[in-house]
């Protein structure tokens, strides 16, 4: 049973998966109430097989905002297959929020 820690998978592979999911996440600030950007956050668990295929996912705690949550589902759907294999299976707990976007506002 893999324990799924980052160290075992390797930092560069982790950074790669993170960048890949982020790149697949499209969300316009004009979909959202500008004053609420800071409050929106959701957590999801994603599990990738060593082949790079997503084997399971679940949005554990949605933000409650439909546009935000829909955009996450799309990002996850678009991230179902990594363009390259991983050293081993990877279990991720991903926090999605708009901290960087809110800062610019």
């Amino acid at each position: 049973m893999p324990d799924g820690t980052g160290d075992e998978v390797g930092v560069s592979a982790l950074a790669f998966v993170q960048a890949f999911i982020q790149q697949n996440w499209a969300l316009s600030p004009y979909l959202l109430d500008q004053s609420r950007l800071r409050d929106l956050e959701a957590k999801a668990t994603l599990s990738y097989a060593a082949s790079g295929e997503m084997i399971r996912y679940r949005i554990n705690t949605p933000s409650g905002n439909q546009q935000f949550d829909d955009s996450l589902k799309k990002a996850i759907t678009k991230s179902k297959q990594l363009p390259q294999p991983l050293p081993k299976q990877l279990d991720l707990l991903v926090t999605f929020n708009l901290k960087e976007m809110a800062r610019g506002k």
Partner: peptide
Amino acid sequence: PWSALAATEIEISSPGEQSIP
């Protein structure tokens, strides 16, 4: 049944694209 597993935590703090293609 699967959700109890330990996982590596990461944070994505802005969408890669701030518009809808």
